[in-house]
C-alpha cells in the first residue's frame, strides 16, 4: 500500500467525520442561541406587496387593509398575534418597547374572541396604532402565516422586507430588525 493511499483511506473517513461533526455542532449551537430555527420558513411575500385584504377593527381600534399599507411614511411592522398564544405573551414587552421607541406597529389578532383580546391588551399594554381582527383566519392563509406570533417588516414602498415567525427577542431585534429598519429608513 502506497503511503498516499494509506493516508487517503485513513484521512477521508476522518475528514467526513470532522466536517459532519463541525456542521452538526454549528447547527446545534446556533439553535441554542436562537440564531437558527430549522422550522422557520422563508416567506414567499418577501420582496412583494401584501395580498389584497380588508380587516375590521378590534377592541375599539381602527382596522386596515392592504391599501393602508401601500406606502407608509417610514418602515413599520405588522404583528400577527392572539390572546391564546403563549409566545405572544412573552413578546408583548418587546413590542411595547419598540412602540415607545417610535416604531409604528399595526396588529392583527388571529382567530381571537373579542373578550379575550380585550383582556390581553389591557393586561399587556397596547403597542399597536391600528388593530384588526382576522376571525376566520383566511387573511392569514393568504399571507402565508403558519402560526402566531409572526412579524412582518413593511418598507416605505409597501414591500415586505422581512418576516419573523416566533416571539421577537433581544437578539432578533438588535441583530436583525434594527439593522433592517436602518437599511430601509
Amino acid at each position: 500500500m502506497s503511503p498516499l493511499r494509506r493516508r487517503l483511506l485513513f484521512g477521508i473517513p476522518l475528514a467526513v467525520v470532522v466536517v459532519g461533526g463541525a456542521g452538526f455542532y454549528t447547527i446545534l449551537r446556533r439553535m441554542q442561541e436562537d440564531d437558527y430555527d430549522p422550522h422557520a420558513l422563508p416567506s414567499p411575500l418577501i420582496g412583494k406587496k401584501l395580498p389584497a385584504f380588508v380587516l375590521p377593527g378590534a377592541d375599539g381600534m381602527q382596522g386596515f387593509g392592504n391599501t393602508d399599507l401601500a406606502a407608509p411614511p417610514k418602515p413599520m411592522l405588522v404583528n400577527w398575534f392572539a390572546s391564546w398564544c403563549v409566545p405572544c405573551l412573552q413578546e408583548a414587552p418587546m413590542l411595547m418597547k419598540l412602540a415607545k421607541s417610535g416604531l409604528e406597529i399595526w396588529g392583527i389578532a388571529y382567530q381571537d374572541q373579542p373578550g379575550n383580546l380585550a383582556n390581553f391588551i389591557s393586561a399587556n399594554g397596547n403597542p399597536y396604532t391600528r388593530l384588526a381582527a382576522d376571525v376566520s383566519g383566511l387573511t392569514a392563509i393568504n399571507w402565508g402565516v403558519y402560526g402566531v406570533p409572526e412579524t412582518y417588516l413593511i418598507d416605505k414602498q409597501g414591500i415586505v422586507r422581512w418576516r419573523y415567525a416566533g416571539a421577537l427577542t433581544d437578539d432578533v431585534v438588535s441583530g436583525t430588525l434594527l439593522p433592517l429598519l436602518q437599511q430601509y429608513a
Binding site: L41, P42, P44, W143
Partner: peptide, 8 residues
C-alpha cells in the same frame, strides 16, 4: 399553496 407558503 406554493404561492402562499413557498415550495416547502
Amino acid at each position: 399553496m406554493v404561492q402562499r407558503y413557498g415550495i416547502f
